[in-house]
Amino acid sequence: MNHFALPGGAGLDLVRYPVDPRDRLRAWDASDEYLLQHLAAAEDPLDDLAGGDGRLVVLGDRWGALTTALAAYEPVQITDSFLAQRATAENLARNGRPADAVRLLSSRDEPPARVDVLLVRVPKSLALLEDQLLRLAPAVHAGTVVVGAGMVKEIHTSTLELFERVIGPTRTSLAQRKARLIFCTPDPEVLAARAADPWPQRYAFPSDVPGSGALLAGRTVTNHAGVFSAERLDIGTRFFLEHLPVPADGHHVVDLGCGNGVLGLAASLSAPRAELTFVDESFGAVASAEETFRANAAPGAEARFVVADGAGGLARGSVDLVLNNPPFHSYQASTDATAHRMFADAKRALRPGGELWVVGNRHLGYHVRLKRLFGNCRTVAGNPKFVILRAVRGD
């Protein structure tokens, strides 16, 4: 499952991160293969890039397959995902590529000043693609080779229109194994006339959310591109806020998978002397949570903002309360692996008597895993779609 065949017969040993031998999901898909085959068959646009200098940019590489395969060209990888960065580092090491062959940049870092080849792995979020293309546009010139890749179900008319609006004329390849390539020709006039980047965006928190949500009424919520439910409060978080526990002063509260940070902010407003930590694997999410918190927190309220894989980096037994609205998609694959990893990390970080509160879709059955892991799980509240669960760490 780990062998990724390259054009010409060579191959790579690729894994997702964190490495789990039981994980049957591959660290690449047919669109990664299609893109590399195109580069190998075409009049090679990479021939002049062996010196590096950040002229080859790989945008949105999900698990480092493209970056590892092209490491000899010293690419710059830009991603919003901490896990993608860690997977890339892991895959470079597994395949004998030096770590310094690649520059790993986040979606919030300053992009390179010049890009000669731009390879785009189309993200699930059109907003994230818009933000990243607009941030890179000043570095693109008339001679830049721009090639995108994605599965057919990921590439829509709106995707192509976005490339055309920001960079220039765009066309697609024929589909191959349900994958498609995007070819975009930079047009200096289009590049010069591009609109300003609309991200981050902000909205006023609604005034009709009871419970802890009432503390947020009218406050400004900041959302960087790609953050879940960036335009409005999502219904799962709304339900969670109606039943959110009030932490004790001085307690350490973690908003795990924080998104734009409204859960942690509500906890802080209800207990201003509590210590908050916001954690997410998305660089944009953590930036959103920090801006939301700084704009709305009570004077003197304390918080840390951490880009990481779950709560694994927090000291064992250092946390009193974990609030978690876990994702259940990994790109196009539905999986509960991320949620289960979050639950295990939360238990490790909680002190004896500390609590994990989780909101999730009712059909996901999180109570089974929580009861097995913690030895207990209580349903706090439920409606036809969502359930809120509470698990307490024992001694």
Rank of each mutant, 00 (worst) to 15 (best):
S107H: 04
S107L: 06
D109L: 06
D109Y: 07
D109A: 14
P111Q: 03
P111V: 06
P111S: 05
P112V: 05
P112G: 05
P112C: 07
R114I: 03
R114K: 12
V115H: 06
V117R: 05
V117A: 11
L118A: 09
R121H: 09
K124S: 02
K124I: 00
S125M: 02
L126I: 13
L128R: 04
L129A: 08
E130S: 13
Q132F: 10
Q132M: 15
Q132A: 11
L136D: 10
A137S: 15
A137L: 08
A139R: 03
H141E: 10
H141F: 00
A142H: 10
G143P: 01
V145F: 04
V147W: 05
G148L: 07
A149G: 14
K153R: 14
K153D: 13
E154N: 13
E154C: 00
E154S: 14
E154A: 15
H156V: 01
T157W: 00
S158L: 14
S158H: 13
L160I: 12
L162T: 10
F163Y: 15
E164T: 14
R165N: 13
R165C: 06
I167K: 11
T172C: 07
T172Y: 07
L174K: 14
L174M: 07
A175G: 14
K178H: 15
R180V: 08
R180H: 03
L181F: 06
I182Q: 05
C184Y: 04
T185Y: 00
P186R: 10
D187P: 02
D187K: 01
E189I: 01
V190F: 04
V190N: 04
L191V: 02
L191E: 00
A193V: 03
R194L: 12
A195K: 15
A196G: 14
A196L: 11
D197P: 00
D197W: 04
P200Y: 09
P200E: 09
Q201Y: 00
Q201E: 12
Q201S: 14
R202K: 11
Y203H: 13
F205V: 02
P206Y: 11
S207G: 14
